[in-house]
């Protein structure tokens, strides 16, 4: 029973990772790519870690997987903020389908 739940959670995680990587390939500019990839891959890896927690049960290894989840969330989101800000200041152009850019006058 536990094994079945763990396998289902890990499969869902791998499926989300696949979506994230397709987004990394298909979307047109860096900002959209970063969005799709960060969201999908972070939640996919969290789902895999929850599967690991279910598999090992409450104990040393389970708590280790549980501690990794908030670390993963904070580091992934903060790294995404830093990257998107760095890319804007570096001068990366927005895609031509972009309809609005409020940030340009703010950094001037």
């Amino acid at each position: 029973m536990n094994d079945m739940a763990a396998v289902i959670l890990i499969s869902v995680g791998v499926l989300f990772n696949i979506f994230g990587c397709i987004g990394l390939l298909r979307l047109p500019d860096i900002y959209n790519r970063l969005q799709a990839a960060t969201k999908c891959v972070t939640l996919g890896c969290c789902s895999i870690l929850i599967g690991v927690l279910v598999h090992f049960g409450i104990g040393g290894a389970g708590f280790r997987a549980l501690v990794a989840i908030p670390i993963l969330f904070f580091t992934a989101t903060v790294a995404a903020h830093a990257l998107v800000r760095g890319a804007y200041h570096f001068g990366t152009k927005l895609d031509k389908r972009t309809v609005k850019d409020d940030y340009r006058e703010a950094v001037k």
Partner: peptide
């Protein structure tokens, strides 16, 4: 960045 997250999985 994404590569680093995938390795955890």
């Amino acid at each position: 960045d994404i590569f680093g997250i995938l390795v955890v999985g």
